[in-house]
Design a protein around this nucleic acid. Structure first.
Lengths: 129, 129
DNA sequence: AATTAATCAGTAATGATTACTATTATTATA
DNA sequence: TATAATAATAGTAATCATTACTGATTAATT
């Protein structure tokens, strides 16, 4: 894979914006630096970087996929009110491996735990009403 | 919500086909019973049934959403080779609640754990090559 | 049975993502 | 450092998944 200025910019943008941006948001952010970049380039490189293990793609119900620059073992909280995604570090889920091995013949390569709920500021909004 | 024959058929179809069908597959299945049903009706009712808590929507990276008639606490294995989704019952993840409460102010309403890996038959195919 | 409201089929529209193509950038090499 | 080969890009068209719209049909209510 050749170097590309655009890919580097896309990667840095996701790394420096820990907001779990979707492709469109990444596009908006990188355009500030490179107004001619195309949306297709953003999609292609986000997917490439995910395949390379440099980024993670997060699939959330009822909305577009979002991207995460953190690749260490961690998980996500999704607020079902405002849609924001938050990181959370939990003790390793590898404790589940044994259980999984016992109840199925499946070679586990990774876990995506999405915790649904309501975030602090959305709760506060409710309290005020 | 009024009764509808189409909704009943869609619901029964998901319940009786524990293959985690996506909307298109549900559409194909229900058309065998009701050739005039429309895809929009399938989508609308699948979403309605999910909102009512009668079905669950599963969001999987790089593919369309799929639907699950099992609503008891369980989780999913996704084979990254063949794309098939399998159910797995794990001990309650509510053990995580305390951890989550400690590291964030977030009101948890549910967990979606997607375990990625390779299923038994895909492993066997690899072995043969 | 008549009225009201919900749901439907069929189709158009939207949103997200991928594919295509001619051009440009990167890399390897002479 | 020029050149040839390859990879990546911008811009656009196409596809896939899903939702919205509309006039007709069906279910519930009086």
């Amino acid at each position: 894979m050749n170097y590309s200025r655009q890919r580097e910019l896309i990667y840095q943008t996701v790394m420096q914006n820990a907001i779990h941006p979707n492709a469109d948001t990444v596009y908006a952010l990188v355009r500030a630096q490179d107004p001619n970049i195309s949306l297709g380039t953003v999609y292609r490189n986000l997917n490439l970087l995910c395949e390379q293990g440099q980024l993670r793609k997060i699939s959330v119900p009822n909305t577009s996929d979002c991207f995460d620059g953190r690749c260490d073992e961690h998980h996500h909280l999704i607020c079902t009110r405002c849609g924001k995604v938050f990181d959370i570090s939990l003790g390793d889920l590898f404790v589940l491996d044994e259980q999984i091995k016992n109840s199925s013949e499946f070679t586990v390569t990774g876990y995506q735990l999405l915790i649904e709920g309501i975030c602090k500021s959305c709760i506060e909004i409710t309290d005020k009403i």
